[in-house]
Design a protein around this nucleic acid. Structure first.
Length: 314
DNA sequence: AATGAACACAACCGCAATGTC
DNA sequence: GGACATTGCGGTTGTGTTCAT
C-alpha cells in the first residue's frame, strides 16, 4: 500500500521541496486527520518518509511529536491528578529532569506534559519561596509538606468513594472525566522508598494501611513495570526527631502514617530553616496573594503552618 | 469594556544516541 | 569503521486563554 517513498527523486530533492513549503506552528484538524489516518493504515515510525508519504508538509520530527504527545489514542488528557502529582514529585526527586523516564510510570502521560507541569506548577512554588527548585530547602519542603499533604488528600478522596474502589476520578476543565492513577500502583512506587520501618535502624519488612489499600513491600520488577527500589535506599536512610514523631503519631493519625516519610535524603531536616519563609509565603498566598482558595496548587495552607508550628514548638 | 500580566500548554530546536548502509 | 539518517530527550519558545486592574 505504501507506494510513496521510492517513486523517484533524491533525498536532497525531497529535502529541497520540503524546505520550500514546510508548515510550522499549530496543527490543523485536517493535518491531524491525515496523520491519524496514515498511521492507522501504515503504522508509525520512519517519520520523515511518513510525513512525505502522508502528504503532510511537516518534518518527520513534527509528526512524531504531534502523534506521541497529542494524537496517540492512549494519551490521557486533562488535569494531573493528585496521585499523579505525588508520583511526579517522588520520581523527580529520584531521577531529576528525566522526563521520559518519569512519564513511563504515568501511563498515558507524555514527558512533555510532565515537564510542563513541573515548570508551571512546581517551579512556580519554588519561585514563590524564593529558592531554587533544585535546592535542598525546596526538596525538603516538597518531601515533608507537599507530598504528605497530597497523600492525605488522596486518602481523603479514597475514603469518600465506594468501598473497594482503589481509584478516584477527576472531572477535567474540558469536561471529560479521567480516571486517576491507581492507588495501589502509587503505593508500590512511593512507599517502597518513602516509608521506612518503625525502627529507623531497621529497614526490613513492613506493611501499612494506605487509604483502602494494604501496602506491602512486595514491590518487585516482576509485579510492576517500575524499577524496584530497596527499602534501604538513600531516601530511607535518615533521621527524624523522636519527639516530633511522637507528636505526629499522637495528634495526627494520618500524618503519622507518613512520619517515617518525613525524612531528609541527606539525613536530617531543619525545620527552622524553612519556617519563617513558609509563614511569610503563606501569609502572602492566603491573605494578599491569590485569596487562599487555591489549595490544590499551594503546597500548604494555614493548617499546615499550624501543624508545623505545633510540631516544632514554634 | 479594555488591556496588560500571568499562566498553561503545544510546538520547536539543538544535541546526543542509535540504527542503517 | 565511517558517514549519514533517524529517533529520542531535555530545554526553550510561541501562542492562546484566563485573570487582575
Amino acid at each position: 500500500m505504501n507506494n510513496c517513498v521510492e517513486m523517484g527523486g533524491s533525498e536532497e530533492d525531497d529535502q529541497m521541496t520540503m524546505m520550500e513549503d514546510l508548515r510550522r506552528g499549530p496543527w490543523t484538524v485536517e493535518e491531524d486527520f491525515t496523520l491519524i489516518n496514515y498511521i492507522a493504515h501504515h503504522g508509525e515510525g520512519r517519520w520523515n518518509s511518513l510525513a512525505r508519504c502522508a502528504g503532510l508538509k511537516r518534518t518527520g520530527k513534527s509528526c512524531r511529536l504531534r502523534w506521541l504527545n497529542y494524537l496517540r489514542p492512549d494519551v490521557r488528557r486533562g488535569n494531573i491528578t493528585l496521585e499523579e502529582q505525588l508520583l511526579i514529585l517522588e520520581l523527580h526527586s529520584r531521577w531529576g529532569n528525566r522526563w521520559s523516564k518519569i512519564a513511563q510510570h504515568l501511563p498515558g502521560r507524555t514527558d512533555n506534559e510532565i515537564k510542563n507541569y513541573w515548570r508551571t506548577r512546581v517551579q512556580k512554588h519554588a519561585k514563590q519561596l524564593k529558592c531554587d527548585v533544585n535546592s535542598k530547602q525546596f526538596k525538603d519542603t516538597m518531601r515533608y509538606l507537599w507530598m504528605p499533604r497530597l497523600v492525605e488528600r488522596i486518602q481523603a478522596a479514597a475514603t469518600t468513594t465506594t468501598t473497594g474502589c482503589s481509584s478516584s476520578s477527576t472531572t477535567t476543565s474540558t469536561g471529560t472525566t479521567t480516571n486517576s492513577y491507581p492507588l495501589n500502583k502509587i503505593d508500590n512506587i512511593v512507599t517502597s522508598q518513602l516509608v521506612m520501618p518503625q525502627n529507623n535502624n531497621n529497614c526490613g519488612n513492613f506493611s501499612s494501611n494506605f487509604g483502602n489499600t494494604q501496602i506491602t513491600p512486595s514491590y518487585t520488577p516482576e509485579n510492576s513495570s517500575t524499577t524496584a527500589v530497596s527499602p534501604g535506599s538513600d531516601l530511607t536512610d535518615c533521621y527524624f526527631p523522636s519527639q516530633n514523631q511522637n507528636f505526629i503519631q499522637q495528634n495526627n493519625p494520618i500524618a503519622s502514617e507518613f512520619t517515617d516519610t518525613l525524612i531528609s535524603p541527606s539525613g536530617y531536616f531543619n525545620p527552622w530553616m524553612d519556617y519563617q519563609t513558609m509563614v511569610e509565603q503563606n501569609h502572602q498566598w492566603t491573605d494578599g496573594g491569590n485569596g487562599g482558595d487555591e489549595f490544590s496548587d499551594n503546597m500548604w495552607n494555614a493548617e499546615d503552618i499550624w501543624f508545623l508550628k505545633q510540631q516544632f514548638n514554634m
